[in-house]
């Protein structure tokens, strides 16, 4: 059996009349962290949304553990074991931390089983367990959004810009948490903060204008300043 968990093959995605993804391909290996890099508007978020079924591609294929998933609705893809952490701290603001986490249960007892692990990653959530999600700080909301994806037994996590707008000290906590999570699951990470992505990822794909233009080992990319300057604008 192949160790490729997710395989995206030449997908073309449109949003309205705009052709956003023009043949994106990538592979995510089981147990790895793969970073999806690129400038603003390169198509990173649309790639995650296409995988999740929120912006289904018009052509190309997406396979999860060999099973085609493109064309399936988002809730079915989630039930196959794909956790999605959208950008902008996508929590349910009116519900408490506990209710947010409980909503992510797919089987009764999921939260009880993984609660200790989640609270060890994000101790703040324990403190505000019965507070409405909307009252948490930006960093805590991001932690809650990530924690929610950990409640169910997900095979793959799609995480979009976890460091967006957060203070460096919070970013460090999230990096530490993601590193621990990588031991348990597979992660496809979209991240603008190259320094953060470089600390975490085993492999990378670079998107530019809706196309995947380069991929390889992250350890090699950190020394490739020409590529970083050309596609990421970060030194």
């Amino acid at each position: 059996m192949s160790d490729v968990l997710l395989e995206v093959d030449t997908i073309h995605t449109f949003i309205g009349q705009f052709h956003i993804l023009e043949g994106v391909s990538l592979k995510v290996r089981t147990g790895s962290i793969t970073a999806l890099l690129g400038r603003n508007g390169a198509g990173k978020t649309t790639t995650l949304r296409s995988i999740m079924g929120l912006n289904p591609p018009r052509s190309g294929s997406i396979r999860l553990a060999g099973e085609p998933i493109n064309g399936r609705p988002a809730y079915e893809i989630a039930q196959l074991g794909v956790g999605y952490v959208p950008e902008h701290r996508a929590i349910f603001r009116d519900l408490t931390v506990e209710e947010n986490l409980r909503l992510a249960e797919r089987k009764r007892g999921d939260l009880a089983k993984r609660s200790d692990f989640i609270m060890s990653l994000f101790p703040d959530l324990k403190r505000f367990y019965r507070h409405p999600g909307g009252k948490l700080s930006g960093g805590q909301q991001q932690m809650l959004a990530i924690a929610r994806a950990l409640v169910a037994d997900n095979r793959l996590l799609l995480i979009d810009e976890p460091s967006e707008g957060l203070a460096p000290i919070i970013v460090e906590q999230i990096v530490a948490a993601l590193r621990q999570m990588a031991a348990e699951t597979t992660i496809l990470l979209v991240e603008q903060n190259f320094a953060m992505a470089a600390q975490l990822a085993d492999e990378y794909y670079i998107l530019d204008d809706g196309r995947s233009v380069q991929h390889g080992r992250m350890a090699d990319l950190v020394h490739d300043h020409a590529t970083i300057d050309k596609y990421l604008g970060a030194g």
């Binding site: 999740m52 929120l54 609705p73 988002a74 809730y75 989630a78 996508a90 349910f92 519900l95 909503l103």
Partner: peptide, 12 residues
């Protein structure tokens, strides 16, 4: 609160 978020958690 947000129907899309409920969908990506696996709810029909």
């Amino acid at each position: 609160d947000n129907e899309t978020r409920a969908k990506v958690l696996g709810y029909h």
